[in-house]
Simulated assay, not measured.
Amino acid sequence: MSSSKDDIYMTRKDKDEAEQSYLPNPATQRRPNNNHPVSLIAAVIAFYFFISLSVVFLNKIIMSGSDFNYALFVTWYQLVVALVLLLIFAHLGRTNKTFSIIPPYEFDTQIAKKVAPLTIVYVLMLALNNLCLQYVEVTFYQVARSLSINFTILFTYMILGKSTSAPALVACFIVFCGFALGSYGEINFSWAGIIYGVGSSAFVALYGIYVQKTLAAVDNNQWKLLHYNTTLAIIFLFPLVLFSGELSDIWATSEAIYDMGFWILMTISGLMGFAINVAMFLQVKYTSALTNTICGTAKACVQTVLAVMIFRNPISGMNALGILLALFGSGYYGWVRYQERMSK
């Protein structure tokens, strides 16, 4: 659990938090370009930075900073926390205007059947993302997952039959070069991390496409989609946790489950995973699509620098070049897509 994603509706560069975000970003909803105070915009951007960085670092600490290497269970628990928050805020929204953006909770089996394919993609996206964090350094995390742009272009053509402009393809090539160089130069290279990262990237791209196809089933309400997606994800993921052997291993060998501090950390990570939805909602509401793009790229740069400072991740020259290329290509792709949207 975020990513965006980082957005789900916008093309991939804005989707960086998607694997950790429990809500598709409403970035495609048209809204007036109101003039908001600079202090408010700065606060919204700062909130987004804090939440999105916290999601990644908290999950990394949980995945590798303890003996609790159970990515599927961590993902499932974070979804449970998100659902509890949804139920609380939906209830508060009945009487408090502050929470009125979240509609009352609902779960209709007929609608759930239509949302189910999206949820399967969603579960795989979240699980693979946490597995990727378990095996790679945070400095390399952005590179391992950078191919979402490439998969977005591929799936958009294969599933939706839409072609991509030449500048966007150039950005795609730059990202791939960054991925290749970053992987080759990674000091603590992990094939498992690479495979999980590429898999997560593929499902992030698929998720963005399936969201667009599924929104009509929930009256184009992204919060209502969140109700169904989170509920179904908890139901679908639990058998995987059970049959993977993680649950039995946790009870048999893990000391962390007896540590209150660990559960507090797990719960906070779930809160942050949910809060990224609010952060993205506010950023879309009070800033622009270009600001989202810039913030996504800037956040990735800050994330890499902080990873070096906090985790002391070693970086080779080729690895650094790969990271820079992946970030540049992602930023350029976001800029190209922004220009294309503005020209329509």
Rank of each mutant, 00 (worst) to 15 (best):
S288H: 04
V241W: 02
N130K: 02
Y196S: 11
T109S: 14
I41W: 00
Y77C: 02
F243C: 08
I111T: 15
A127V: 15
L327W: 03
T231C: 14
L53T: 00
V84A: 13
M309N: 07
I120Q: 00
Y122E: 05
S343Q: 13
C295E: 12
A116F: 09
I149Y: 00
G161W: 04
M266Y: 01
I310D: 00
M280Q: 07
Y228N: 03
S330Q: 05
L40V: 12
I88C: 06
C172M: 15
I315F: 07
F151W: 11
Y338L: 06
A326W: 02
S201F: 02
F151S: 03
K299A: 10
V284R: 12
A205Q: 03
Q283L: 09
L232G: 03
A326S: 13
A320S: 06
Q212G: 09
S66E: 06
I268A: 06
Q20L: 14
P32V: 09
T95F: 10
V198M: 12
T164Q: 12
L126Y: 09
F89T: 12
I195D: 04
T253P: 01
G65N: 02
T267P: 01
V136Q: 04
T297F: 11
V175F: 01
Q29F: 14
K285I: 13
S244E: 05
H91S: 15
A18R: 08
T95D: 06
S288P: 00
L321T: 11
L240K: 07
